[in-house]
Amino acid sequence: MLARAARDITPGMTVNLGIGLPTQVMAYVAADCPVCLHSENGIAGVGGLAAPGKADRNLIDAGGGYITCAPGGAFFDSAVSFALVRGGRLDLTLLGAFEVAANGDLANWIIPGKSAAGVGGAIELAQKARRVGVLTTHTDKHGNPKILDRCTLPLTAVGCVNRIYTDMAVCDVLPDGLHLVELAEGVSLAQVRAATGAALIVPEGSIPTF
């Protein structure tokens, strides 16, 4: 699914990869693909992860990982960094999710009574990137669907998600509902339906796989 999400990162894009799973997508983007990676702590033009022993104490991404700056990269303060986000300069962001809904609502920052460590930059990324992809396992560790008709947890942003990448499928959120776009290799339509908590609109004919 990381490799599948990476295929939607195309030349010329400015992209922000959320903390956790989304950050790992970077490893699947072709090294010669001209992509400007933004990290909200103040860099556009992330080169990659710093080699072991080569970390610069002043150069991290928003997740705290040591990175390098690509030739042509820029550093800026946090207000400029979010001006870039809110001003619509991000072509794509990939974010994690606790829950994502068929109407594009995203919940990924607070589980009342359990996890509430703060929202960071997620609200602005989710609300203002031109395209929002969610990267998540299809079900939680108890096997419950994470893709629901409506979110039950407090929202990060309303109606913000365009595409969902999971270990089982790729789905698009469109005005008429949740569309199945692709199935993971070896996964059946019936399995995806059973693992999804929302109605799926399925294309006619054979479903592409990834």
Binding site: E40, S78, A79, S81, F82, R86, G118, G121, I123
Partner: peptide, 13 residues
């Protein structure tokens, strides 16, 4: 603790 969206925190400052 008061949580503020990161860019809103920056912009309020």
């Amino acid at each position: 603790v008061e949580f503020v969206a990161q860019g809103i925190l920056a912009e309020r400052i």
